[in-house]
Computed example of a mutant assay.
Amino acid sequence: MPFIRPISDLRNNFNKISEICHQEAEPVFITKNGQGNMVVMSMALYEKQQALLELYQKLSVAESQSQLNEPKISHKELISKLRSNLNE
């Protein structure tokens, strides 16, 4: 369930908003004149979302590359090549 607070709470109840962000690990939606205005979240949640976005972008690139008709090697072959490179 989303947490929605008026913009005046940023000034009057900042500690409560901060507490919600950290304890619930959810963003708090801030309204101004009854309309959505901004979102406040903990640094931990922000970093987690950024990491997920980066992962999704990398997966998208990998998926695109897998559709190409380039030669592929098995996991066993890859590990073997990596080990031989490390041993050199």
Rank of each mutant, 00 (worst) to 15 (best):
K32E: 09
A44Q: 10
S64H: 08
N37F: 00
Q57F: 02
R83P: 05
L68H: 12
E77V: 07
S60Q: 08
S8R: 08
A25R: 04
L45N: 04
K32R: 00
E26R: 09
E24I: 02
A62K: 08
E63T: 11
C21Q: 05
A51C: 02
Q57S: 05
L53I: 06
H22Q: 06
C21T: 01
Y56F: 04
S60T: 11
N15M: 03
K81T: 08
L55Y: 06
S66K: 15
E24R: 14
I7L: 08
E70T: 11
I30S: 02
N85V: 12
L45I: 07
Q35L: 08
P27Y: 09
K58G: 02
R5S: 06
V40C: 06
N87I: 02
H75K: 14
E19Y: 00
E19Q: 06
S8M: 05
M43W: 13
L53Y: 09
A62H: 07
V40T: 04
K58W: 10
S8A: 14
D9R: 05
L10Q: 09
L52T: 11
N13S: 10
E47Y: 04
N33E: 14
C21L: 01
H75G: 14
Q35C: 03
L86M: 11
A25P: 00
M41N: 01
K76T: 15
A62W: 00
S60A: 10
F3V: 12
S18R: 04
Q49I: 07
P2A: 15
M38C: 11
M43P: 06
H75M: 13
P6H: 04
K76W: 02
